[in-house]
């Protein structure tokens, strides 16, 4: 019987081989077309690579003169960032702290909420509910970030102030929380895709051992989807680090080295947008500091991405 079931496979292979030759001869136009499409795709790929390279080039070439004036040691260790003052100081730490703090708050919201939502959507929600909830969630990320920023200032901050009236009108907590809400759909949507692509066979294995839904979801489906979920987290981090509008509007724009999330502070992105909106003369050190800050941001995001890629490779499952 095995032999019988193998025969069709053999036969069709032979058929494919036999028909391959005429197909190749059939028309030169099709061949040329294929070449053309291939070339077009290559061009598109090269284009995106070129743009990335261009960005890196601009960043580096504009930041390099900055680092000729400001030693990199000072840039990394000085505790003040006041490039526009009469007596300028160029320590990136306050901006970095602002970025990391708001990112941390956002992730503290988005990772648990997004992951739990993903588990619920993928393993518990009835199909009909999922088909409504998922697109609605994804719409969240279509809301312009300015709207989120004003939402933070006008709604969340007053709410926080009800709890503690000393909280300043601009603070990192409010900005971070709202940013977290904005990021939730990135995590939930991608993680849900990853978990749903875990084969049913694996779930059945767990159920057959006597596990319930929750245990199957947490002990089998989640680890099996870890690589995809890691990708979702990486994207969320990159999104949070690079987010500009919400923090510029709601976190305040005074760089300050602080670990208190209730303080107001500027992030790297907030600084860049703030300074770019002013009219700094091209070529001044203040102008160049934008690129130094941008370069730092680039390195930060790159670092997170590399860690994410490494983790993904580490946890990649073959099923």
């Amino acid at each position: 019987m095995n032999a019988i079931s193998q025969q069709p496979g053999i036969a069709s292979n032979a058929a494919v081989r036999a028909s391959a030759a005429p197909v190749r001869q059939r028309s030169a136009i099709a061949g040329a077309m294929e070449k053309l499409i291939e070339f077009g795709l290559l061009l598109a790929a090269l284009f995106s690579v070129a743009i990335t390279a261009g960005i890196v080039f601009v960043l580096v070439s504009e930041a390099a003169p900055f680092f000729r004036t400001v030693p990199i040691g000072e840039f990394l260790t000085a505790r003040l960032w006041t490039p526009l003052f009469a007596e300028p100081r160029y320590g990136i730490m306050p901006l970095l702290a602002g970025t990391l703090m708001t990112t941390g708050i956002a992730l503290a919201v988005a990772m648990p909420v997004g992951t739990i939502l993903a588990i619920w959507l993928s393993e518990f929600a009835p199909a009909r509910v999922r088909e409504i909830v998922k697109p609605v969630l994804e719409m969240l990320s279509a809301v312009p970030t300015v709207v989120f920023g004003y939402f933070a200032v006008m709604s969340v901050t007053p709410l926080l102030q009800k709890i503690d009236s000393d909280i300043p009108a601009f603070n990192m907590l409010s900005a971070g929380l709202v940013m977290g809400v904005m990021i939730v759909p990135y995590i939930s949507s991608l993680s849900e895709d990853a978990m749903r692509s875990v084969p049913m066979l694996l779930r059945e294995g767990s159920y057959a051992m006597g596990a319930g839904r929750l245990k199957t979801a947490i002990r089998v489906v989640f680890p099996a989807a870890l690589s995809g979920i890691g990708a979702a987290y990486t994207l969320a981090v990159a999104r949070a680090v690079g987010e500009t509008m919400i923090v510029a509007i709601a976190a305040g724009q005074q760089p300050s080295l602080t670990v208190n999330p209730l303080d107001s502070a500027a992030t790297i992105t907030a600084f860049i947008v703030q300074v770019s909106l002013g009219d700094l003369p091209h070529g001044t050190i203040g102008y160049k500091s934008i690129f130094a800050a941008g370069f730092t941001l680039f390195v930060l995001t790159l670092g997170f991405n590399l860690v994410g890629a490494w983790l993904r490779r580490r946890f990649r499952q073959a099923y």
């Binding site: 006597g210 002990r219 680890p223 099996a224």
Partner: peptide, 19 residues
């Protein structure tokens, strides 16, 4: 679940858990 606790199953394709 009670029945699955008492009766085990081996599937057509091996399905080890990611552990």
């Amino acid at each position: 679940i009670e029945m699955r606790m008492r009766i085990s199953m081996v599937f057509q394709k091996p399905n080890p858990f990611p552990k």
